Computed example of a mutant assay.
Amino acid sequence: MTSAKARVALWDNARFALIVLVVIGHLISTVRTDTELGFALYAYIYLFHMPAMIALSGLFSKPEVTPKAIASTVQLLVVWGLWEGIWAVLRGVVSGKQLSQNFLVSPAWTLWFLVTLATMRILLPYIARLKHPLVVATGLALIAPLLPAIGVNFSAARTLAFLPFFVAAWLAKERGWLAGDWFMAPSRGLRAAAWALFAGIAAVMAALAALPGGFRGAWRIDRWLTHRDSYAWMFERAPLGAWNANGDGVAGWFGLAAGGVAVGALLLALAAAMTLALLIVVPRGHSIFTVWGTRTLYVYLLHGVVVWALRESGVVGAVGQLGWLGVIVLSAAAVAIAVLLSSSLVSRVLRPLVEPRMDWLFAPMPTRNPS
C-alpha cells in the first residue's frame, strides 16, 4: 500500500504569502487613493498577486477529463453558487439590497476567482491539444480587451487575461521546467536577483510617487490591474500620458489598440517576472506558514465578509484617515485576519461552507470485470 504523495512546502508557503497580499489589497482598496503609499502598495500587490495565484492553480491542473477532475471542477462551481447565495443574503439583510439582475452572471466581488479557475480547468484539455498553447493563451489575453463587450460577466475578461499564467504553469510542470536545482534549491545569486527585481519595481513606484502630481496623478494603473475591462474603457478612465480613448496622441483606433496591446504585454511580462521571483525567494522548508498555506481557500472566501463588515461599519475609512500610518495599520490588520482565518478551528467549523462534501452528487464509478 503506497502512502499519499507528500505536499511540497514551497507551494504552500507561496500560497500563504499570496493570500496575505490578497487580504492587504482588499482591505486598503477603498482608501488606496487617499495616500501615495496606499496607492503604490495597492498597485505593487496587484501587479502580480492574482497572476501568481492562478499560476499555482495551473501547476496542479491536468488536461484530463477524469472523474476526479470533474468532481473537483463541479465542487468549485457549487461553492461559487453557495457563496453567491451567502453574499445575496448578507447584502439583503444588512444593506437592504435586492437581488441583482446580474445575479450569477456577474460574480460577486471575490467569487470571480472560482469562476475563472473552473473555466480554465474546463478549457485546459482543449488548450493542451494545441501546438503552441502558451502562444495562443497569450494572444487571447492581449487581443480580448480589444472587444468592447469584454467585462465582468462570468469573469470572461479576467479568465482570458490570466490564462497565460495558468497555461504556463501547467506547461512548466508538464515539461519539468521547474524540476531542476536552479529552482528547487536556488543559489544566493538567483535569490539576490529576485529580491533586486522586487526592489527595483518598488523604486520605480517611489520615483513616480515623488512626481509633482504623484503616482496616481501620473497614471491610474490600478484600473488596468483589475483586468476586467476593454482597452477603450481603460484608456478613457486611466489615460497614459497622451494616450486616451479619443485617440489623442496616437493614430486613431489602431494606435489606441496598439497602445493597449503594448501596455497589456508589459503588464503580463512584469507579472510573469514577479511571479517567478516570488517562487524563487519563498522558503522551501516546512513551518507554520506551510500549514496555513493549505487553508488559503478559507481565507479567500471568508476574508471578504470580514473586510466588507469593516468597510460597512466605517472602520476602514476611519483608519484610512490616518494617512500613511493608516495604510500600515490596515496592512498589519490584514495579516492578522489572514492568520486567524487560517486556523484549524476556522477550517473545522466552516468546512461545510468552504469544502462541502460532494459524494452525494456523483454516481459510483462502475468497476471493470477482469477479462
Rank of each mutant, 00 (worst) to 15 (best):
R91M: 11
L47S: 04
A88C: 10
L82W: 11
Y126F: 15
I86V: 15
S72D: 14
L56A: 08
G85Q: 03
Y126W: 14
A108G: 06
V78I: 15
T33I: 06
F113C: 11
T73C: 12
L140E: 06
L27P: 05
Y46Q: 06
A144Y: 13
A88Q: 08
L111G: 05
A52N: 05
A71T: 10
A52G: 06
Q98K: 05
W112I: 06
V136G: 04
S95Q: 13
Y44I: 00
A128P: 08
H26Q: 09
A71R: 15
L27W: 00
P107G: 07
V23Q: 07
Q101I: 08
V89I: 15
Q75R: 15
Y46C: 02
P67K: 11
A55K: 02
Q101F: 09
W112F: 13
A71V: 10
V20S: 06
Q75C: 08
T116F: 00
V31M: 09
V89W: 14
R121A: 12
V135E: 08
R15F: 05
I19G: 08
A17G: 04
M50P: 12
S72K: 12
K68H: 10
L41F: 09
F60C: 04
V22E: 02
L21D: 01
Q101W: 09
R32N: 14
P107H: 08
L130A: 13
F39P: 03
A108K: 08
L114Y: 08
L124P: 13
V31C: 09
M50Y: 10
W112D: 13
Q75L: 09
A118I: 03
L37V: 13
S61T: 14
R121Y: 07
W112C: 11
K97T: 10
L90D: 01
H26I: 09
M50E: 02
L47P: 01
V22N: 07
V136A: 14
M50F: 13
L140G: 12
P67Y: 09
A118G: 12
T119K: 01
I24D: 00
S57W: 01
A88H: 00
T33W: 05
W87L: 02
R15S: 14
Y42H: 14
M120D: 12
I143Y: 00
L99D: 00
A71H: 12
L146C: 14
I45F: 07
A137W: 09
F103T: 00
N13K: 08
V78Q: 01
P51R: 03
A149H: 00
R121L: 06
F39Y: 15
Y42D: 15
A141Y: 10
S95C: 05
T138Q: 05
R129I: 03
V31K: 05
Q101R: 12
W87T: 04
G85C: 10
W80I: 04
T66G: 07
I54K: 04
P51I: 04
G38S: 12
V22Y: 01
I54D: 05
V79S: 08
I54P: 05
P67Q: 11
G58H: 08
V79R: 01
V31P: 05
L140D: 07
G38I: 11
A17D: 11
K68C: 02
V135H: 04
I70W: 13
I122H: 04
S100L: 12
E36M: 11
I143W: 03
D12E: 15
F103S: 07
S106A: 12
P63T: 10
T66N: 09
L130I: 08
W83H: 15
I24P: 02
